[in-house]
Computed example of a mutant assay.
Amino acid sequence: MIDLISDTVTRPTPAMRRVMAEAEVGDEQLGEDPSVNRLQEMVAELTGKEAALFLPSGTMCNLVGIKVHTQPGDRIIIERTAHPVTSEAGGPGLVCGVLTYLVDGVRGVFTAEQVEAAADPGDGVHTPPTTLVCIENTHNRGGGKIWPIETLQAVCATAHRLGLKVHMDGARLLNAVVATGLPAATWCRSVDTVWIDLSKGLGCPVGAVLAGDDETMRLARRYKQMFGGAMRQAGILAAAGIYALQHHVERLAEDHANARLLAEGLAETPGIGLDPAEVETNIVFFDVQNTGMTAAAFTEALLAEGVRMGAVGRYRVRAVTHLDVTRQDIERAIQAVRRVVLGRR
């Protein structure tokens, strides 16, 4: 099986498994796990923040990141296709009690002018206060779109001028780092909180790390406890994150190259619609309407050929490259797509 349904399907490498088995551990909830503490220090340094907090999932990072900046009844500004809106089961509304002001971005990217318009306080009585702007970089539903750094900085500057905080969903931030050459700290300098995922392109089995200033992270630890995220000997998991940060970051460039190769091959296939120039990192979206198939029928037929992709709309399909997929796998996947499409046509 060539599994391109997501970079969440990656499995820990044998070397990662070894360091997990040999990890120093302690009670994470008491702050006594040396591996967890080291991972948090590494992410704080990487992002240029004062402190960081290891959490079980990226969804919890978004929940905690929203909660530390808001009160129930507040309103947050967020792009319509952002992960907390589309894929986190309504958690921000239920758990944090916030309302969402949805803005329409271009492949997930919106502007400072949109923030200015959305943050209108109204009369200060009937209108809920807007307190937070949420950014997703890279943007999943935008096809792994990287925010232009100038746009990100302008959005943050406008938000802060208006008295708003900024939270960045950086699940795939290191993809942006590798693709652009800009350090993570540069991307994170203007945001108040940010997190990176360990269980996507970095190949870890579990976990994500939220970062911010000391005071915010102390509050975040309280919500980690409240939301059920405190752990015991979590160093076994943190060791995987340490290994990934040391060995799996630069290799993300291979995933990007494989995604471009896939996009180019798909674009040359009759009936497949996409622009390879839009593929900036490791996510490829394409349209199959002109093949005469729905996305569901296409992915089902492709699965029979030994390749798994995801149907994310009536005619839209997503493929994601990762460390368990080689260049040869991509070449085989392109041939499988052509067999499915040409057989149909």
Rank of each mutant, 00 (worst) to 15 (best):
E268D: 15
V284N: 01
T291H: 08
P276E: 01
D255L: 07
G265Q: 13
A296I: 12
G292S: 01
E254K: 11
D255N: 15
D255Q: 12
R251Q: 14
V284D: 01
A277F: 04
T281F: 03
V288R: 10
L302A: 11
P270E: 11
L266P: 03
A277P: 00
P270L: 11
L274E: 06
G273T: 02
G271A: 05
A259V: 04
I283R: 04
E264P: 02
D255G: 14
L274H: 06
T281C: 03
G265F: 06
F285A: 06
T299S: 14
E278M: 09
I272Y: 04
V279P: 00
D287G: 00
G271I: 03
L261I: 12
E300N: 10
R260H: 09
G265S: 13
F298K: 05
Q289D: 01
E268N: 12
T281S: 01
G273W: 01
F286S: 08
E300Q: 15
A257Q: 15
Q289Y: 06
E278I: 08
E264I: 05
A259C: 07
A259T: 06
T299L: 13
A267Q: 11
L266H: 04
T299Y: 12
L261G: 08
A301R: 13
A263D: 03
G271K: 06
A257Y: 13
D275K: 05
G265N: 11
T281D: 00
T294R: 11
D287M: 02
I283W: 00
M293S: 09
A297Y: 10
P276R: 06
L302R: 03
F285Q: 09
G292Y: 01
R251A: 14
E264K: 14
G292M: 00
P276H: 01
